[in-house]
Amino acid sequence: MSFLITILPAQLSFRVQDSETILSAALRAGIDFPHRCRQGVCTSCVCKLKSGEVRYNEPQPLSDVDKQQQFTYCCLAYPASDLVLHHPFIIG
């Protein structure tokens, strides 16, 4: 199964397979997606979740503030549905 991810405001879309993170799928699709550490520390890949649902492997990487702000750590996140994400530095 795969899910459709749309990145705003760039209006870029790509598909993510069950076993891959959002970041891995974006890079596979040739999208210039900001990233550095791939461990949820640098926050380069963090997007704001506009719609849909994501899941993480344990331990849960999100703080309460991250959850309130709807932040998605794309290097660690797996989609649980189609998603709309916002990242201001990704351009089409």
Rank of each mutant, 00 (worst) to 15 (best):
M1L: 13
S2A: 14
S2I: 12
F3A: 06
F3L: 03
F3C: 06
L4R: 12
I5V: 08
I5G: 00
T6Y: 03
L8F: 05
P9C: 08
P9Q: 09
A10T: 11
A10F: 08
A10L: 15
Q11C: 11
Q11G: 06
Q11T: 15
S13N: 07
S13D: 03
S13V: 13
S13E: 04
F14I: 06
F14R: 07
F14N: 00
F14T: 04
F14E: 03
R15M: 02
V16E: 06
Q17M: 10
Q17I: 13
D18H: 09
D18E: 10
S19Q: 14
E20A: 03
I22Y: 08
L23P: 01
S24L: 14
S24R: 15
A25C: 12
A25G: 07
A26Y: 05
A26D: 00
A26K: 06
A26I: 02
L27I: 09
L27T: 09
R28H: 03
R28G: 02
A29R: 15
A29T: 14
G30N: 03
G30L: 04
I31R: 04
F33V: 00
F33Y: 04
P34D: 07
P34C: 03
P34S: 13
H35V: 10
R36K: 10
R36T: 11
C37R: 07
C37W: 05
R38Q: 14
V41Y: 06
V41P: 00
S44P: 15
C45Q: 02
C45D: 01
C45H: 07
V46P: 01
V46F: 09
V46I: 12
V46H: 10
V46D: 05
C47E: 06
K48N: 01
K48L: 00
K50A: 05
S51V: 12
S51G: 05
G52M: 11
G52Q: 09
G52N: 04
G52S: 13
G52C: 08
E53N: 07
E53F: 08
E53R: 10
E53D: 07
E53P: 01
V54C: 02
R55W: 10
Y56W: 07
N57E: 13
N57Y: 15
N57A: 15
N57Q: 12
E58V: 13
E58A: 11
E58K: 13
P59S: 12
Q60C: 02
Q60P: 03
L62M: 05
L62E: 09
L62I: 12
S63Y: 03
S63F: 05
D64H: 13
D66S: 10
D66R: 15
K67Y: 11
K67F: 04
K67S: 12
Q68G: 14
Q69M: 14
Q70V: 02
Q70N: 06
Q70T: 00
Q70M: 06
F71D: 02
F71S: 04
F71L: 11
F71R: 08
T72N: 00
Y73R: 13
Y73T: 08
L76T: 03
L76W: 01
A77I: 03
Y78K: 14
Y78T: 12
P79V: 05
A80Q: 08
S81Q: 14
S81M: 08
D82V: 13
D82S: 03
V84G: 07
L85I: 06
L85K: 01
H86F: 07
H87D: 09
P88N: 13
F89G: 08
F89S: 12
F89E: 15
I90Q: 01
I90C: 04
I90Y: 01
G92H: 05
